[in-house]
Structure formats: structure tokens, C-alpha cells
Design a protein around this nucleic acid. Structure first.
Lengths: 223, 223
DNA sequence: AGACATCAAACCTCCGATGTATCTGGGGGT
DNA sequence: ACCCCCAGATACATCGGAGGTTTGATGTCT
């Protein structure tokens, strides 16, 4: 195994063993390189790889720190990965979303506070009558993000967020809006909020399923 | 933004734009560094980061290539990330598994071929009467992997596989502290296979739910 | 045709130096 | 006493070059 990969494992070991905890600062490059037995250049490659997946946070002029290691931080590297997928695998991602989103919606129905629900409704209301596509996409993303967050499960929330990669969603949306499906999406969003407000998990889950399945079905035909 | 991060984006762009496809070879370090306008050292950091998430495959003495970009490749970096999580977030991962596994099991019930089912049964049968803990865990992992693969969705399969990492650790615990767990797990596995064989998705889904919930409930009490 | 030695290409590792951002502490002004 | 500004120290960012190691291809010999 290459020296750099060994260094990655060693740093990973320092964290998982508890020697380094969230927020802790690593020794400076020169010291850590000497301790791990490699050059600064090779160490930098290891640190770069770990900072890419949000395990380390490097600040020039300050130092290198272990991040909070919170699920949302570590999993949002997922969206970066998802961006590399081509259209022919989007359906598989969508199928997973059709599993996760309804479940998250059902959980949110039981766990969201009235204040959370009010904010969710506000998201829908702040959209004007004839919004531009960009606002529509952003609004849709925020809507689903709040529901996912309402599930009370940070892992589930991050997963949904990551799988709904901005690129993918934007690409799909562009096509959907051309067929005038924006209005129908809006109605479905409102139906989900209504079901959550009424504290009916089954109903909320069903609406979420229908919502995702609609996009999935459209995409299946388009490909 | 740092030069290295720019380089990452540029390489990403070369792939997403189609200039570089799966299996294609990148220009050699020196040429690519000159083209992107940075030093080889900095470029190497970018390449290292991208190879860590399985987007690039570097082979010493040969060259650097774009991977197949298949979902299972890109998502198995997930297991690396998941390893950083501490025990207090394992419950959240388990809750997500309780969503994904039953769904995958139901899909597998409809999509697995008789040959697939036979191989699944074989996995259960090859386990002796009093296997060591390690074999038990490995067998359990293989069992769930085959079902996930049987769902016919590579993204779903990789996701389940990646999330099973921390759960596995917990299960080792369970094996060590709760003696009756092994036999019960085996019964539940057999029940799942029976339901799949009978082509009863609802039954298979329910058994899968019970199976994961059992681990989850035990862990919830243990913490 | 097959096995082996040789060579070139490409990545791996290292070194030392310079640039740049951040934090810290002292000096001066109010 | 308090605040602001600046110089020094610290630590990461980037660079160019020099060997070393692995791989794949070439060519030769049996």
C-alpha cells in the first residue's frame, strides 16, 4: 500500500480510536509528517483526501482540525459523488428516493412541532404565482429538506438531501416544467403539508409516494 | 478558492461534460498540471481526493483513468465515511436501515430468480451448527448483501451495504452479550427466504422489518 | 511460439524554498 | 483603562526539481 494511503488509515485510526476528537487540532504538517514517517507533500495528499469527505477542516494560517463528524457533514460529500452519475442511473436513485422520502414524511408527521409545520407551510406560500425555474427548484429543494429534517433523523435527512443532487433535480425539473407540471407539484406539496398538519402519517406517506412516483414515471418515459 | 480545489472542479467538469468518459485515460501528471495551470504537487492532491471517492483510478507505472463511475463503486466510499461515526449515531443509521432493508426485501421478492433464491438459501445452509462469531457476522452480511443485490437496484444495494458497517459492529456486541441472538437471527433469516420463495412481498417485508427492529430495539436498550 | 531481459513511460516520494492567510502581542492614541 | 493598528510569528499553499519504483511494451534468444 502506498505511503499516502497508510497515512490516511493512520489519521483515520487516530480519530476512531479517540486520540483525536471532533474539534481537535492536528499537529502541524511538519510534525505530523515526521510522526507518520513521510514527507509533507505526501501527507498533504492524505489530508486533502480526508478534507474532501469533510473529516478534516484545513484553515490556512491557522491549522488543521477534526470536524464535528456530524452525519450531515460527512454525508453531504454524497452529493458531490452523485453529480458524477449519468442519466441512465438516475432512475435507480429515484427509486431509492421513492423509498426514503415517504418514510421520512411519515416520521415527520409524527415528530414535527406545530412551529415546524408552520415554517413548512411558509415555504410553499412564499412562492409567487409565476416563479422562474430557479426559484421553483430552490423552493422544491427547501420543501423536501425541511420534511427530511422533520424526520428527526440526521442520517436520513442527509441521505435524501444528497440523493436529490442539485444537478439531477435541476435537469429533471427543466423537463417537467416544460409540460406544465409545476402546478400539480404544488398541489401535491400542499396535500403533504395538509396530511402532516392533520397528523395522518399514512396519508402523508401516500402523498409523498405519489409525488416521487410522478417524477419517476415521467422520467422513465422520457428516457 | 484554492488552486487544488479548482483543479478538482475542472477535472470533475471534464468528466461531467463528457470530455472524459468511464475508462478514459487522463493526460500524464506533467501535461495535465500544465494544462490546468498548477504544479504537479498540487495536481496530485486533487487526483488523490478524486481517487479516494473512486472517481479516478491511478496505477503506478501505467497512468490515471476514469473509473466505470458505477453506483456501487462511487457509493462504497460511503462505508469509509460511515466508519467515522461514533456509537451515539448508530441508532440513526439503524433507523434508516429499517426503512431500506424491508423495501429492498420486498423488491427482491418480486425480482429474484429461482437461481438467486437457491443461492440465498445456500448461504444460510453453509453455516455450521456452532459457528464462531466472526463467521456469523460474515454470513449475516453476505445474506443481506444478496437480498440487496436481488432488489435489482445497484444504488439501493450499495447504500444498504455501506450503512451496514456500523451496524455490524453493534451486532458483534450483541453476539458477545446476548447468547440467544444467533438462533433467533437464523430463524428470521430462514423466514425471509421462505417468504421470498413463496413470492409474498408483504410477508418478506414484514420479516425484514422485524429482523432489523430486533437489533434496533436491543441497541436502544443497551445505550 | 514461448520465455526472458531490457527499456521507456508514468506515477511515487522526497526536499527545500517562497508565497499567503491567520493569529498574537505590543505600541500608540483616545 | 480601553481600543485600534501594525509587525512578527505561525501554519498552510504552491512551486520546481530530483531520484526511486512499478508497469507495459519491445525485442531477443531458445
Amino acid at each position: 500500500m502506498a505511503l499516502t494511503d497508510e497515512a490516511i488509515d493512520k489519521i483515520k485510526g487516530m480519530i476512531t480510536s479517540g486520540e483525536l476528537g471532533p474539534g481537535d487540532r492536528l499537529p502541524k504538517e511538519a510534525d505530523l509528517a515526521e510522526r507518520l514517517g513521510l514527507s509533507r507533500n505526501s501527507l498533504r495528499e492524505a489530508v486533502k483526501a480526508l478534507s474532501m469527505i469533510r473529516v478534516l477542516d484545513v484553515r490556512q494560517g491557522d491549522g488543521t482540525y477534526v470536524t464535528s463528524l456530524a452525519p450531515d457533514l460527512l454525508l453531504d460529500a454524497l452529493s458531490f459523488v452523485v453529480d458524477f452519475h449519468r442519466d441512465d442511473t438516475v432512475l435507480q436513485f429515484l427509486e431509492v428516493r421513492r423509498i426514503l422520502e415517504p418514510a421520512a414524511t411519515a416520521l415527520a408527521t409524527e415528530r414535527m412541532t406545530p412551529a415546524d409545520i408552520a415554517k413548512l407551510q411558509a415555504v410553499l406560500d412564499e412562492l409567487g404565482d409565476d416563479p422562474p425555474i430557479e426559484a421553483l427548484v430552490a423552493n422544491d429543494l427547501e420543501f423536501h429538506r425541511q420534511i427530511a429534517a422533520g424526520s428527526g433523523n440526521a442520517v436520513l435527512c442527509s441521505l435524501i438531501d444528497g440523493l436529490s443532487g442539485p444537478t439531477t433535480r435541476a435537469r429533471i425539473w427543466r423537463g417537467l416544467t416544460q409540460e406544465g407540471a409545476a402546478a400539480r407539484t404544488r398541489e401535491q406539496h400542499q396535500a403533504i403539508v395538509d396530511a402532516i398538519t392533520a397528523r395522518q402519517p399514512d396519508l402523508a406517506r401516500s402523498w409523498a409516494t405519489i409525488h416521487v412516483a410522478g417524477v419517476e414515471e415521467w422520467l422513465r418515459r422520457a428516457l
